[in-house]
């Protein structure tokens, strides 16, 4: 381990989280170097000073606010949409895709469309109350980007990023609770 590597791990010796071989190496380096010993002592002092600062927090008032707002929102896993609506969404999605293929349709009004969006192989609809942060996380994990949409009925067309395996991307998207329907074009 270089001196810089030892130096980078010193804060983790100071906070007691370093383990195994790394800990032994850093401890040995510190034992042999007076400057590292003083630096370690300084880091421990900084940590102790930071942790000993009094910290106000919202406490029970924050909890009361949380309980009140939790009342109005249901955890995502407990949202059970009637199967008839899921089936209807799937049929509607198939019809829309069919129309798009047969009529070589115009760009979808109401959403945005990028060059090459017509080639986007995935069409998906998401639960309307999906937070943007969760949608973003899912798209990043699946390795896809939005090529067009949302359409008037909320359908997005998704394009795999370079190097993304289409079937794997579809698998990740399907696994998300808030993906209400998903179609993957066969000609990709």
């Amino acid at each position: 381990m270089t001196r810089d590597e030892i130096s980078a791990l010193l804060p983790f010796l100071a906070n007691g989280t370093l383990e195994g071989k790394e800990r032994a190496e850093v401890e040995a380096a510190v034992a042999a170097d007076a400057t590292l010993q003083t630096e370690l002592a300084a880091l421990r002092a900084i940590r102790e000073t930071m942790q000993s600062e009094d910290s106000y927090s919202p406490g029970e008032m924050g909890l009361a606010r949380l309980m009140r707002d939790a009342e109005t929102q249901v955890p995502a896993t407990r949202i059970q949409r009637p199967w008839i609506w899921q089936a209807a969404a799937a049929v509607l999605l198939a019809v829309v895709i069919g129309q798009a293929v047969l009529t070589n349709r115009e760009p979808v009004p109401g959403g945005f469309e990028l060059a090459g969006a017509d080639d986007a192989p995935i069409s998906a609809a998401f639960a309307p109350d999906t937070p943007e942060s969760e949608l973003r996380d899912l798209l990043l994990r699946a390795g896809v980007e939005i090529a067009a949409g949302p359409s008037a009925i909320g359908i997005y067309r998704l394009e795999p990023l370079e190097g993304t395996d289409l079937s794997e991307a579809a698998r990740i998207l399907r696994a998300a609770d808030f993906v209400e329907s998903l179609e993957v074009s066969d000609d990709q």
Partner: peptide
């Protein structure tokens, strides 16, 4: 910070199943 804390735990409430 109190508002963000609230948002964090609301997201935990909504997303715990994921």
């Amino acid at each position: 910070s109190a508002d963000i804390l609230h948002d964090v735990f609301m997201e935990v409430w909504r997303s715990a199943g994921r």
